[in-house]
């Protein structure tokens, strides 16, 4: 699972008002090379919760992202490369996502988060 997806996912448990961002428990991280696509990054940037991305990338062991980001920084190639790496190339292979409110764990196996809820959580 990429951090792109992590940035979109939130906890859906009944009664949870703010299920975003999910905390990450890391067991194994893999990096996969993906072609750099500037237009996609520009398109995605306004939709990304920057703080969540920075925190997630730090738990995954990537500390290069700046604390704050503005759209003017998109002109810098260096920034875009870092953004690209954090967003698309870092994969959480094994571990878990944790709901920030209830502490419920969603296990991640082989890169697939299991977001299935139990009957009493719907």
């Amino acid at each position: 699972m990429r951090l792109l997806t992590h940035n979109m996912l939130s906890s859906n448990i009944k009664g949870v008002t703010n299920g975003f961002p999910l905390l990450i428990e890391v067991e194994k991280v893999v990096e996969k090379q993906v072609d750099f696509n500037e237009d996609f990054l520009r398109n995605m940037f306004p939709k990304i919760e920057w703080k969540a991305l920075v925190e997630a990338s730090r738990t995954m062991g990537y500390t290069e992202l700046p604390e704050n980001a503005e759209s003017s920084m998109l002109d810098s190639d260096e920034f875009l490369r870092k953004f690209h790496h954090a967003l698309i190339e870092l994969h959480l292979e094994e571990g878990a996502l944790v709901c920030p409110e209830t502490g419920r764990k969603f296990p991640v196996n082989k890169g697939i988060p299991n977001m299935l809820l139990h009957e009493d959580e719907v």
Partner: peptide
């Protein structure tokens, strides 16, 4: 990216 989930439980995605 793949997510194991049930669409009938609602999609657990952020808004918009």
């Amino acid at each position: 990216d793949l997510v194991l989930g049930d669409m009938g439980q609602g999609l657990d995605l952020r808004t918009g």
